[in-house]
Each structure stands twice: as structure tokens, then as C-alpha cells.
Design a protein around this nucleic acid. Structure first.
Lengths: 149, 149
DNA sequence: TCATAAGTCTATTAAACAGATAGAGTTGAA
DNA sequence: TTCAACTCTATCTGTTTAATAGACTTATGA
């Protein structure tokens, strides 16, 4: 199961992507329209900012904006920022490989071999789908991935 | 990431599948060969027993045996017993559907639409791969799914 | 028959994590 | 210079994970 935090992050990014361009959106507005606890959302947006997905303006006419275009932000990238590695085993992560604690021989690990298929399929979907794709799917009812797998 | 408990369960089942047929294996032996904390393994095997994957014999010449043949036990089934639903969102689970807490309209949920792809791919792999497949992959180095997707 | 060695069951624990909340601080426009 | 925005760090509560504990039941065989 994906975390509530990840859902919130994705919802917030979808909301920002749909806002008029170059017009910052208040945290408070996102929180209200997306039904996200405001203080929790602050932390999430701060994370996304530190990772370069969004920018903020301070002061009275402040708010958040997407830094990169929705076509370039993938679900995979967001999930990695919020949840950590996509892979179901540390030894299957491409971005954050770690040896499994008690694993003696990776090559012969049968569990690893099976879950490698899950990991790959997950990557194909999440790294292949952008925020823009998700918004476009609203009209078509189908998610068309814009990034070749 | 899958839990340590799920890894232990799969390792235990692989060990049982490889033991001589109709010869019960002691918990202590599995614990030792698979490097699983013994008391923890007891709980896991008890779960698997309650779910009808294994049987036990008590008393001096006791131990555990696979109840069903390794060709009929899928990774998906084991994961569901140990971890619960495979799906990344409750509203995407086929076996244990639940509405997402804060979801107003499932049909229009863009996050759901994207993760539906992940859920389906995960099911194809895990419900399509059996304990026997994983053991066979040892020889070939490749996991061949025996269940049509 | 009864000691022993096996599984059974329920409770407890410690540490980590998830989700959320709190509050003092900084910034910039009116 | 005030005020409404974002920033940062800390804290809290409940749940989950991984593991441990211990009393109990059952079957074998000396």
C-alpha cells in the first residue's frame, strides 16, 4: 500500500499542474481543495521543493508553482522522493541499491528472481507516467504513457 | 518493500518444497538452514498452517510438511496471507476491496488510474509464479511462470 | 507410564514509522 | 511596519514490525 503522504504529494502536484501558469497557489488553497491537512502539506511541499519539483514564493503574494513542466515529472520520481525506493527488495533497487541483510548469494536468490519481475513492471508504469499523462487521462479515461519503456 | 516476515515465509516454503516428500521437517531445522529466528518462524508456519498451505505433526517425530504441491502455491497467495492485499491502493484490491477513506469519486481518481497498472502487473507476476517455478528457476536462472496470465 | 522433544497459542516488548500537529522564525508586498 | 504568506524543527500519538517469552498440548519410546 502506498502511503497517505504519497497520495497527498501526487494530488498536490496534480493541482499545481492544473493551476494557471505562473500564478502561485497558496498552500492553504491546495489543502482545502484537496482535503489535505494543511501543516502536513507544508512538509510535503517543502520536500518537493528541496528536490526541485516545485518552487515557492514567500511573502504576501506567495504560494507554490511547478518548477518543471508536468510532462517531465513522473509518478516514479514523486514516489521515490516521498516513499523511497520503488523496488520491493533493497537488492532490486536501481536508484538505491542495498544488499539484503541476510542474503548470502544474490545470484541464486529465488525470491529476488521472482520479485525482479515485479520491480521492473512497477518501474515501467511509474517512471513511464507523468503528471501530464494523469491529467490527460481525465479526458480519455485511459492513461497513455508518454515515456517509452 | 516486502516485509522480513514475507521473505521468511517464502524461504520456509521453498525449504519445505525441497525436502523429501512425506518427511516432516523440524521448525528448528528450517530456522537453522534458512537463518530465521526460531520463535518467529513458529508463528509464520502457524499462519501458513491455518491457511491450509502446510500441515504439522506434533510429538517427538513431528515437523512440518507442505499440504499442497509446490506447483499450486503461488507467491501471490503467500504474500496475501502474510502481508495482506497486493494492491497499492485499497480501492484496487480484487481480493479485499475497500474504498479509499477520502475518495469522492473512484472513476475520476487519476492516482487510482495510474496505480491500476501497477496493481495488475504485480498480480500477473505474483499470482502467476509458484513455489515450484521459483525452484525450477534455480536450474535455468530464469523464472518461467506456469500459470497463464 | 512418564520423560522428553516436538508443535501451539497468546502475550509482551522495543524500535521504527506514519500521520498529524505545534510553534517560533523569516520574508516580502502593500 | 504590519500582516499574511512560506520555513524549519520538534513533538506527539497510534500502529506496525520483528522478535522474544513462556506456559501449554501432544505423541513417541525407554
Amino acid at each position: 500500500m502506498i502511503s497517505q503522504k504519497a497520495k497527498y504529494a501526487l494530488r498536490a502536484l496534480l493541482a499545481l499542474a492544473e493551476a494557471p501558469e505562473n500564478e502561485p497557489v497558496f498552500i492553504a488553497d491546495i489543502a482545502e481543495t484537496q482535503a489535505i491537512p494543511r501543516k502536513f502539506l507544508e512538509q510535503i511541499l517543502l520536500d518537493l521543493k528541496h528536490q526541485g519539483l516545485v518552487v515557492s514564493r514567500r511573502g504576501k503574494a506567495g504560494g507554490y508553482l511547478l518548477l518543471r513542466s508536468p510532462e517531465t515529472i513522473t509518478f516514479g520520481e514523486v514516489m521515490r522522493i516521498i516513499e523511497g525506493p520503488l523496488a520491493p527488495l533493497p537488492c532490486l533497487s536501481k536508484m538505491a541499491y542495498r544488499k539484503c541483510e541476510d542474503c548470502t548469494d544474490e545470484k541464486s536468490c529465488r525470491i529476488r528472481r521472482v520479485f525482479a519481475g515485479v520491480a521492473e513492471a512497477t518501474r515501467v508504469v511509474l517512471d513511464g507516467t507523468t503528471i501530464a499523462d494523469a491529467i490527460a487521462s481525465d479526458k480519455s479515461g485511459q492513461v497513455r504513457r508518454s515515456i517509452a519503456s
